[in-house]
Amino acid sequence: MSILEVKGVNKRFGGLQALGDVNLSVAENTVHAIIGPNGAGKSTLLNCLVGKLIPDTGSVMFDGQSVLGRAPYEINQMGISRVFQTPEIFGDLTVMENMMIPCFAKRDGAFEMNALTSIRSQRDVLEQAEAMLADMNMIDKREMLAASLSRGDKRRLEIGMCLSQQPRLLLLDEPTAGMARADTNNTIDLLKQIKDERDITIAIIEHDMHVVFSLAERITVLAQGTPLVEDTPENIKGHPKVREAYLGESA
């Protein structure tokens, strides 16, 4: 059964057809990769899923409910978390504070006027945040400022923050972009572990074929705003249309 249904989505920026009649179905508890050359519309599609952009036509259903017209925070509260291409974390706050914020968001909702309760008394949130930091192997960095972390650790922290909301769908936008090989492999291991240990659906946009073929169970190839093929990794590898779209880029 599919958790995310995209049907007939179109998006135009002036004269540019960024997305043309995109249909996509992501099955529950799978890892679904969306690949394609630069400018294929991958990020535009992702932005349409999380409420950053509104498609001109078409529908986006998450778990039977439409996400269109909802604010990003509402879509997140429905159960979709997003990891950005450059890690979006709270740089001025400590790692522990970074981890507490999604825990509060999960517990208290989009807004809570708890101005006179002390953070120290919120044991449930503190425990949850610490457990997640331990899972991410970052417990020794808890008092560090998030901005001072290495690129790989920032990514780990961001993924941990998304996971601590217990989302049903995790969207990853080129999670290994600009990473060294070792960091990339660490991230792949982390994502594999997440996939094995949790009931979670992962949709991933990626350029790095090594990452895609290590993780994905289904792959959709996007070219010029339209899905070319959707299939298993084995079938995608030798698909002539895919080779044509990449035109030597990965061949």
């Binding site: 999380v50 604010a71 990003p72 925070y73 509402e74 997140n76 509260q77 978390s81 997003r82 950005f84 979006e88 974390i89 709270f90 740089g91 001025d92 706050l93 504070e97 507490m100 914020i101 999604p102 509060f104 968001a105 999960k106 208290d108 909702g109 989009a110 807004f111 809570e112 006027m113 708890n114 101005a115 006179l116 309760t117 002390s118 953070i119 120290r120 919120q122 949130v125 923050m161 909301q165």
Partner: peptide, 27 residues
């Protein structure tokens, strides 16, 4: 008390990164 509350933490988060706040389900 406000500085040390979850509410105060959210206000610091607003200053730090509004994008992340919105995508963490916070208005």
């Amino acid at each position: 008390r406000i500085f040390r509350s979850p509410f105060g933490l959210m206000l610091k988060a607003v200053k730090s990164n509004q994008q992340r706040m919105n995508f963490t389900g916070l208005n």
